[in-house]
Write a protein that binds this DNA or RNA. Structure first.
Length: 480
RNA sequence: GGCGCCGUAGCCAAGUGGUAAGGCCCGGGACUGCAAAUCCCGUAUGCAUCGGUUCGACUCCGAUCGGCGCCUCCA
């Protein structure tokens, strides 16, 4: 069974149904990191949103071909990697220094993704390995009259492409170009033209090209890798809102200028993250990396949940209070899972009303998917899970759910966890040890030696195990 | 100057023409040796403010106040 999904499309500014170019298959390009430093949690919000997007399509029955590039040549990378080299260093040495930096931070970035349970893309191309394709693309643009050379650099001629501005909804008349830092640095025909190939400068690594030594511009990287790995028609292209202009607008200009037809059907952008009500900035002391937060005791999965439980198109205000709320929300879902994995024990207090667990479950599934299909409305989708939890907890208190009903609920939790990856089945390898301690505690309880009984409970709590006494006199446990 | 977003309970947050989902926190009760988990009850006469349209508006329109983003560094 395949579900249809709709997403807000920056191109149309509407929530549009996603209709794949190839039935049942989604090609997804997401702009990856520039690997010159640690990713901060704002960057990671975008990657978490894209993981949600990808996993949702996968869970909805699509095959997803995902490409995320690694930008490993760029101004800041050059700035940070070339400092220790002598002025007469060879080009090979310069490339070596650049690669040393980018390899290091690429590895760190991938570790961060693993920590957050972000699935690896099918393709993780490095820009530096696609320079020939970039040069080829620029040559096509040159042949079509959309690019021109000035002093060893190549520029895109915006005036040659009528649809320029269609993504950002900007028109050239309304653009304020005075703020451009580079405005007079290059010999462009128009200040709005952008660079495709940069002529080399002293102290920079370079590649040979038909226009002399130089290096690719940032925007051309994504066009080249996207076209090469995902083809001429891509279903979804995604990034942070700040990439709408100029990066994605320029990608469209390059790719469509080259192809002569539309390249990407759906452009999807994730909003920014703020910290405690302010922009994240090193000067404000609120600049967080994943590793920094973990050092402060933040559970990375709580961060994942915090970010994914808010809508991706709304500014998210990160706070430690929010992390705490997320941790407690997750406890509730996980405790419910543990309860469903165990056996029921009826006999609770008052309740509102009986329900048919199977019908109630199906209702939750329908609500969950309706929310996810409507532009990834995760707050509403999670609400469907929480109301199910409340209803079935009450139900199970009174008339214990049968094994097959519990298994059906667990299947739904697995189905939703395939997207959120925050309430998986936890294998209990400590069983024997824990059971022995529980037996010891039971003996103490029978002897009404409460102090000894509580000591066992504290001992297990220190190991991350929470005990739950049941009505029938047995004791259950779970990680918590 | 141009384009655009947001303002819902202590905190987070969905809804967007038919009378306020959900989570966290908090108070009361049940259960328990005490807990934990769970359940039951309670917690916004109101959705920034002021007007307008409508049988009816948080939801549409206008104005105002407040916060934010983009207009070639940026997730």
């Amino acid at each position: 069974m395949r579900r249809t999904l709709s997403l807000f499309n920056t191109l149309t500014r509407r929530v549009d149904l996603v209709v794949p170019v190839q039935d049942g298959q989604i090609s997804l390009y997401t702009c990856g990191p520039t690997v010159y430093n640690y990713a901060h949690i704002g960057n990671l919000r975008t990657f978490l949103f894209q993981d949600l997007l990808k996993r949702t399509f996968h869970a909805a029955g699509y095959e997803v071909k995902h490409c995320m590039n690694i930008t490993d040549v760029e101004d800041k990378i050059i700035r940070d990697s070339q400092g220790g080299l002598p002025g007469d260093a060879s080009n090979a040495e310069r490339h070596g220094a650049m690669t040393a930096l980018t390899d290091r931070f690429t590895a760190i970035f991938l570790e961060d993704l693993d920590t957050l349970r972000i699935q690896r893309a099918d393709f993780l191309p490095k820009a530096t390995t696609y320079v020939p394709q970039m040069i080829g693309l620029i040559q096509v643009l040159e042949a079509k009259g959309l690019a021109y050379v000035r002093e060893g650099s190549v520029y895109y001629r915006i005036a040659g492409l009528p649809q320029y501005g269609c993504l950002a909804h900007l028109d050239r008349e309304g653009m304020q170009v005075g703020a451009s830092v580079d405005a007079d640095e290059y010999e462009r025909d128009s200040v709005t033209d952008f660079v495709l190939w940069k002529a080399t400068k002293p102290g920079e690594p370079w590649w040979d090209s038909p226009w002399g030594p130089g290096r690719p511009g940032w925007h051309i990287e994504c066009s080249a890798m996207g076209l090469e790995l995902l083809g001429e028609r891509v279903d979804i292209h995604s990034g942070g809102v700040d990439l709408i202009f100029p990066h994605h607008e320029n990608e469209i200009a390059q790719s469509e200028g080259c192809l002569g037809h539309q390249w990407v059907n759906h452009w999807v952008h994730g909003e920014f993250l703020m910290v405690e009500g302010q922009k994240m900035a090193k000067s404000l002391g609120n600049f967080f990396t994943l590793r920094g937060l973990i050092e402060k005791g933040v559970d990375p999965i709580a961060l994942r949940y915090t970010i994914q439980s808010n809508h991706y198109r709304k500014v998210l205000n990160f706070s430690f209070e929010g992390i705490r709320a997320a941790e407690n929300s997750l406890k509730r879902i996980r405790a419910f899972r543990a309860r469903m994995e165990g056996e029921g024990q009826a006999g609770g207090g008052p309740w509102k009303q009986a329900s048919d667990p199977a019908a109630r479950l199906e209702q939750a599934r329908v609500a969950f998917w309706a929310a996810m299909a409507d532009d990834l409305n995760t707050p509403e989708a999670l609400a469907a899970i929480f109301t199910l939890i409340s209803d079935l907890n009450a139900q199970d208190d009174h008339a214990a759910l049968a094994r097959e009903e519990r298994d059906a609920v667990l299947a739904f939790l697995d189905e939703t966890d395939a997207i959120f990856s925050a309430w998986p089945h936890e294998a209990g390898s400590l069983d024997a040890e824990v059971e022995a301690l529980i037996a010891a505690r039971k003996a103490a309880k029978v002897a009404k030696n409460w102090a000894a009984a509580d000591q066992v409970r504290d001992q297990l709590k220190a190991l991350g195990i929470v005990l739950e006494d049941r009505k029938d006199g047995t004791t259950g446990w779970r990680k918590g």
